[in-house]
Each structure stands twice: as C-alpha cells, then as structure tokens.
Simulated assay, not measured.
Amino acid sequence: MTIKTHRTLLLLAATIISAGCQTTDIAPPKTIPQYENIRTMQADSDLDGDGVLDAIDECPETPPNVVVDAKGCKIIIEGGDALEMEFAGFFPPMSSQLPAIYDAEFMKIAEKINEYPEASVFIFGHVATNEMDKDASATLGFDSLSRNRALSIKNTLVLQHGIEAKRIRTYDCSNKILVKETDYINPSFKALNLNGLEAKQRRATLMASSSVKDLMNLKYDSYIQMYGKYAKHCELFE
C-alpha cells in the first residue's frame, strides 16, 4: 500500500509540473483594427481647418481666416504696425489665368493688405523654361507670359478687392529665379495635381510689406535676404 501511495503522489506531481509548463496562445484583441482606424482618421484630420493635415501641421491651432504656409503656420508676420506677407500661386501650362482654387485665399490676402493702407505690394511673374518657346507664345498671343501672370494677380487685387493700383508694383522675372524640387510644396500645389520641377516654375509671387517701399533701396539685411534676388533678377514694368 505504501508503494502504491508513493507512485500515486509521483504521478500527481508530474501532472502538475507538466501543466505548469504548457503555454496558451492568446488571441489578439478584436479592438486592434479599431485603434488602427482611429489612427488613420487622426492622420487625415485637419482640426484647425487651415487646409494642412494634422499629421504635418506644425502649427495645429491656427486661428480661422489666416493664410498659412505648407507647414500650417501663418505666412503673415506682424509686429506692431508692421506687415510682411508672401504668397505663391501656380498656373497651368502657358496660362496667365490664376486657378479659382485661390479665390478664398485672395480674400484673406486682400483683407490684410487693406488693414495696412501704407503697405506696398510687389508681384513677380515667373515662367518655366519650357514655356519660353517663341512660336508657342506668338501662337497663343502672349507678349510676355511672366508679365501677364503678374498682371493677373494685380488685376485681381484691384478689380475684385479694391486695392489701389498705385500701391502695387509688378515685375518680370522670366525664368531667372528657379526653384528647387523641394520648394513650394504646399496644399494648393497638391490640390491642383501639379507635378514636376517645371510646374513649380509656372508661378507668380506676391509680397506685401509696410516697411519696404523700393527694392533698389533695401536698408536692412533681413530685407535684402527676402527681396534681394528679386531686385537683382527681375525687371520692374508697371
């Protein structure tokens, strides 16, 4: 009887040890796909409504009715009574008609310019190298595509938003100020489905300043850095 008892105890101990060594596969919780969906929704959201997705927005709490850059931050820099503003708009090939996608943005720009009645507005027209074919320009009736693009911006401000023409100076930059592949990556460029380096050259640049009045008389290094290349390479025509 004693021997049988010992054998029974040994078998029982072996069973307990064996059970302790077993592993159990735990099924992943069914909520994981839900978390992934939440992350996807967050990546596609734009909580401050500035047109830049939260995933790449470096200024996530931009106030309403503010013009922002590609990072979601205000492009208008104000200090006391000072205004410095820059805008770049892109055009279809061989066109001087600014796409309607910019209409709402121009309303904000015009409102800000009107808040600073002493500010000057500088508009620079650019073209891509492949738009400088003389035969194509003659066929389409363009004397200077870069000038027409600058004038298109000016006419929009004057005729549609009441900005005084005498405050605006327009410049022909032709293709003398080229941008890099990584420049001007902003929501409007993507929204227009534009691609390639040539598309980035088909643009007009607007700059407004309450301090700078004459590009040929830039007094401070900061203004030279902002406006110097335009003063050097662009021709004032109106």
Rank of each mutant, 00 (worst) to 15 (best):
M1Y: 14
M1D: 15
K4Y: 14
R7F: 06
L11V: 15
A13R: 08
A14S: 12
T15M: 09
I17C: 07
S18P: 03
S18D: 10
Q22A: 09
I26K: 10
P28W: 09
T31Y: 15
P33D: 06
P33C: 08
Y35E: 13
N37M: 07
Q42A: 14
D48G: 01
D48N: 06
D50F: 04
G51Q: 06
G51E: 09
V52S: 01
A55Y: 10
P63C: 01
G72W: 10
K74L: 01
I77G: 00
E78W: 07
G79E: 15
D81C: 00
M85C: 10
M85W: 13
E86D: 10
P93W: 03
P99S: 10
Y102T: 06
A104G: 11
E115P: 00
E118Y: 05
E118I: 02
A128Q: 02
T129W: 12
E131P: 04
D133T: 06
D135T: 13
A136W: 11
A136S: 15
A138E: 12
A138S: 08
L140N: 08
S144H: 07
S144Y: 01
S146G: 01
R149M: 03
A150N: 00
T156D: 08
T156F: 07
Q160S: 13
A165G: 06
K166Y: 13
R169E: 14
Y171Q: 05
Y171R: 06
K176H: 10
I177H: 02
I177T: 04
L178Y: 07
Y184R: 03
N186R: 04
P187T: 10
N193I: 05
N193V: 02
G196E: 08
A199Y: 12
Q201H: 14
R202Y: 10
R202L: 05
R203H: 04
A204W: 12
T205L: 14
M207Y: 11
A208R: 05
S210K: 05
S210W: 09
K213P: 05
M216S: 14
N217A: 14
L218R: 00
L218Y: 01
Y223N: 12
Q225V: 04
M226G: 06
A231R: 00
C234H: 02
L236E: 14
F237Y: 05
F237M: 00
